[in-house]
Each structure stands twice: as structure tokens, then as C-alpha cells.
């Protein structure tokens, strides 16, 4: 296995163009585990940790542009006010050590359906900034996931950043695990209310071959936007539609029946919290 190390972004792009078979590595919390478990061995590793520009985030036209090297710990510490859904999800990733190393871009690169950051990215309509020596592509996150552990990047592209809209209403993330910390999602759900547009974004994790939105649930709520308090029947129906959008399997972490049920409960509850926060003028 070859080990390539880029010190600048331009160099990283050139290296990736020369070696499209190289797997980029940032925190290593996923890539290195796979290698250690001997599950697929890349021909080359492209180490991006020295690329300083990746470790920054900035505000760009209503979005937070999160560099591919920004860790979960920093998202929790620095962006929880503007990206609460993503910060909540980041808080559930692994252990403190993992959060100190792992990145959202790495989660996208791995494209595991169980990745914790996918539901809030879907719910808030994030955009993946992919770059190569040929230029930049902006990929809506909903188009990014193409299959189990597969994504829309071309072999010579790298993730430069993720653009996540600053919250336009309450956001929540909820995840089922069979212990109370350090656990991979049995299933998960993210919700983002847009108070101005009266729309809702959703994201389902670990309950289909890819992370996905619950489009019908989103349309239902937008069409039945409550005038005052949230009608429990609306919340229940919203939960059912979220569950109906999932296509889970039975595996060692849980049964498909449980996943469907749990998604309905999480969707109903998170909508309740979000609505409550909306009615309270933004206070949870």
C-alpha cells in the first residue's frame, strides 16, 4: 500500500488525479478500522491531515461551509447554535477520542447508511462541495448517496467542504442504540423545521440502503402546517409517513419491524419538540 501525503489542497487534487485508486484519510476513524479489520485494502492512502485549509469553516451566503477536516468536536463546540441538528448528531458519534478525530466529510466518504451526520445533512438540505483538477461540483446531499457505502464522487474527486444552511427553525436529531453511548445507530432520524417557508426537512439513517429523506412526510406536514398547537393526529401521521419511507433490514443490531416502529416514534417525538420550540419562540 502506498502512502501519499498532501500538504496543500492543490497538491491533494493532483495526487488524487494521479492516483484515483487512493483512499483519502482524514481522522482515520473509519478508514483505519476497515484496514485493520482487513475489510478491503486500498492500493494507496491519501493523507489529508496536513492540508490546513480543510480545517476551517466559514459563513457563505446563509450557509456554513464546513471544511473537510473540521472535527465533530469542533462542530459541537463552535456550530451548535447555527447547526443544532448536525451538532446533536455529532454529539452521538463514538467516544470523545473519536469525535476529536472524525469528520463529517469522512462520514460522507464512507457513505455508510448508519453514519450519524447523514440525517441532519438531509434534513437541512446540505450540499457537498466536490473538487478535482477539473473543477468544482456542488452535489445536493440527497444525490450524494448512491448505494450501501457508495457515493456520487468521481474517482479523481475529493470532498472539499460541506455547505449546511444555517438553521431556519428548530432542528432535532434522535438515534436508537442499544446502549447509552458509543454505539452505532440501529436507526436514526433528523428533522429541520423552516419556520419562514413553513416546510420541514427530514433525514432517515440506518433504515434503508442509503440515508434518505421521508418526502411524503415532508409534503404532508407542509400541507397540514399547524396554526397553533401541534395536533397529535398530525404528529402521529407524520411519524407513520416517516416510517413508511424506510426500507430496513433485519440484522444483528435490530429487526426491521423494530426499526420501522422506532422511526415512527422518533419522528413523532422530534416533531413535537421542534414544534414546542417553535411556539416558544426558539427556546427548547
Amino acid at each position: 500500500m502506498d502512502f501519499l501525503r498532501a500538504t496543500t489542497w492543490a497538491e491533494a487534487l493532483r495526487m488524487k488525479a494521479d492516483r484515483p485508486d487512493a483512499t483519502p484519510v482524514q481522522g482515520g476513524t473509519d478508514v483505519m478500522v476497515e484496514i485493520n479489520l482487513d475489510k478491503g485494502r486500498p492500493k494507496a492512502l491519501l493523507d489529508l491531515t496536513p492540508v490546513a485549509e480543510l480545517t476551517e469553516w466559514s459563513v457563505e451566503s446563509g450557509n456554513i461551509r464546513i471544511g473537510a477536516g473540521v472535527t465533530y468536536t469542533r462542530i459541537i463546540a463552535e456550530l451548535a447554535d447555527r447547526l443544532p441538528g448536525l451538532a446533536q448528531a455529532s454529539r452521538t458519534v463514538g467516544s470523545p477520542q473519536i469525535r476529536n478525530r472524525g469528520t463529517v466529510a469522512g462520514n460522507l466518504g464512507a457513505a455508510s447508511p448508519a453514519g450519524d451526520s447523514h440525517p441532519p445533512l438531509l434534513a437541512s438540505g446540505a450540499i457537498v462541495e466536490a473538487e478535482s483538477v477539473d473543477g468544482t461540483r456542488m452535489i445536493p446531499v440527497g444525490d450524494f448517496y448512491t448505494g450501501v457505502k457508495r457515493h456520487a464522487l468521481a474517482s479523481h474527486e475529493l470532498i472539499r467542504a460541506i455547505h449546511v444552511p444555517v438553521k431556519r427553525g428548530p432542528q432535532y436529531f434522535s438515534k436508537i442504540g442499544t446502549r447509552n453511548a458509543m454505539v452505532i445507530a440501529v436507526c436514526s432520524f433528523g428533522i429541520a423545521l423552516n419556520a419562514e417557508d413553513r416546510t420541514v426537512g427530514t433525514g432517515i439513517g440506518s433504515a434503508a440502503p442509503t440515508p434518505r429523506r421521508a418526502v411524503e412526510a415532508e409534503a404532508f406536514l407542509a400541507g397540514n402546517w399547524p396554526a397553533g398547537d401541534l395536533d397529535p393526529a398530525v404528529a402521529k401521521r407524520f411519524g407513520e409517513l416517516v416510517a413508511a419511507a424506510a426500507a430496513p433490514i433485519d440484522d444483528v443490531r435490530g429487526s426491521s419491524g423494530y426499526r420501522v416502529h422506532a422511526l415512527a416514534v422518533m419522528a413523532r417525538r422530534t416533531l413535537g419538540w421542534a414544534w414546542q420550540e417553535l411556539r416558544n419562540g426558539g427556546r427548547s
Binding site: S174, K175, G177, R179, N180, V265, M266, W273
Partner: peptide, 12 residues
């Protein structure tokens, strides 16, 4: 129950 994965705020 559920810890920081936030599955409940007390419901259930």
C-alpha cells in the same frame, strides 16, 4: 434512556 442520542425528553 437513550442517553445523548436523544430518543426521549421524558416521553414514555
Amino acid at each position: 434512556p437513550g442517553g445523548v442520542a436523544q430518543t426521549t425528553h421524558g416521553e414514555g
